[in-house]
Design a protein around this nucleic acid. Structure first.
Lengths: 225, 225
DNA sequence: TTGTTTCTGTAGTGATCGCTACGGTATGCT
DNA sequence: AGCATACCGTAGCGATCACTACAGAAACAA
């Protein structure tokens, strides 16, 4: 057990029997579908087996246990999410600041439409807090932290010289929170149009918040504390 | 089965054996704790039985099945949430519009701190979408819809004459989404101070969004469509 | 051919799942 | 007292849970 692939690859691309990596993909895909519908506990090996067409023994050949399987699902979904974002977290060209800002949010909205499972499953895991932490949850929180840092970096160039580091972080946190909330609202209502419209409004809201942070910054009220 | 209390109450307050309503409360309390930690599937009757100190048969005497139990938990948590809000969704006295607005948000933040289980469990249920809908989820979505309507009503007096009905609804939706997101962020990070500070910022953000909606309204651009 | 590695199919393991049958006991009604 | 109702305790139902033992099938290497 615990013999992972990636060690071998001897001359020929695929080793052993006909399938292998393909089976691994099918398992991950099935697990992704089910987990994003039913959460951690609702994802049973029997269900994954049925939907992937592979027996439980194959699942356990490819993955150590259910926990690792779900963690692999998170990792894979995160990569899909990054693909859908097209690496475009850094700002691109645009006219006014607001236009560039809103266009960034629009990219985010589209990515959430094309690859919703990462955030959906991730939020489900985030809200759980069982005594024994699922490693899938830990992994999600880790990559989410990275996303926050990227947003902070992006905002640094957006609001260069206008906001201090603390303000930028607050704004980035509020942004991600609002995006999470709007995502949930769309998942519940299924209203894609309202979802996209909300992102326009969110742009104005965040810029309003930035204005507030600026004026706070002007009058030297609150220090580091 | 399906013989519900509340029908009886003949002269004496409590009927039957010593406990009864008290046991029902203990079961609900145990189920609330567990469900808010582990979600729907993670809430097993055996666990509720253990934590409440009552056998499974008692649980099934008080509730038809697990589904109804969880729905009762949602209902109870919602009432706690309403208590924590103190019925203060309608605006109270204040000086500037922004101050009244932010004070309303602050009340919401405090209620979320004092009674977090309603939203926590509700969001977990919202994100799930198993084929057979849990009635707990349906109930949550229903009372949540009511909350949205109350927010809309509240905003109507806040922005009377300044925003049209569609704008008010958009703003209310964005508000609830942002609150959801901030709530999740706090649950993950455990940072209560950052949570409260975010609500201040959210106030500015929403007022900024309201400004945007106003100016949209001034130039008669988008119609009902 | 013989052996090795890689993956699948069959058939389970004990534990836990939601749920129930049923008797017992405490209470209230008459 | 007699009877009914309300609730708890024990014990266990079939189903499903995560997980595994093990043999066989298909590809490689020698």
């Amino acid at each position: 057990m615990a013999v992972k692939r990636k060690v071998g690859k001897p001359a020929t691309t695929r080793s052993g029997r006909a399938h292998g990596d393909a089976s691994r993909e099918r398992i991950l895909e099935a697990a992704r579908e089910i987990a994003s519908e039913r959460g951690y506990d609702g994802t049973s090996i029997a269900l994954v087996s049925e939907r992937s067409g592979l027996p439980a023994s194959s699942i356990y050949w490819h993955f150590d246990d259910k926990d690792q399987l779900l963690a692999a699902v998170i990792e894979r979904s995160f990569n899909h999410w990054l693909e859908a974002m097209g690496g475009r977290i850094t700002p691109r060209g645009g006219e006014t600041l607001e236009q560039r800002f809103v266009s960034l949010l629009r990219v985010t909205a589209r990515a959430l439409t094309n690859a919703p499972d990462f955030l959906r499953l991730g939020l489900m895991l985030s809200l759980e807090r069982r005594p024994e932490e699922a490693s899938a949850r830990t992994l999600f929180l880790k990559v989410r932290e990275q996303t926050l840092e990227q947003t902070v970096a992006s905002y640094k160039s957006f609001f260069a010289g206008e906001l201090d580091a603390a303000g930028i972080r607050k704004l980035a946190t509020l942004t991600m929170a609002a995006v999470d909330g709007l995502f949930i609202a769309r998942e519940v209502s299924g209203d894609q149009r309202a979802f996209e419209a909300s992102f326009e409004l969110l742009g104005a809201a965040l810029l309003g918040a930035a204005e507030r942070l600026k004026s706070r910054n002007a009058r030297p009220r609150r220090s580091k504390s």
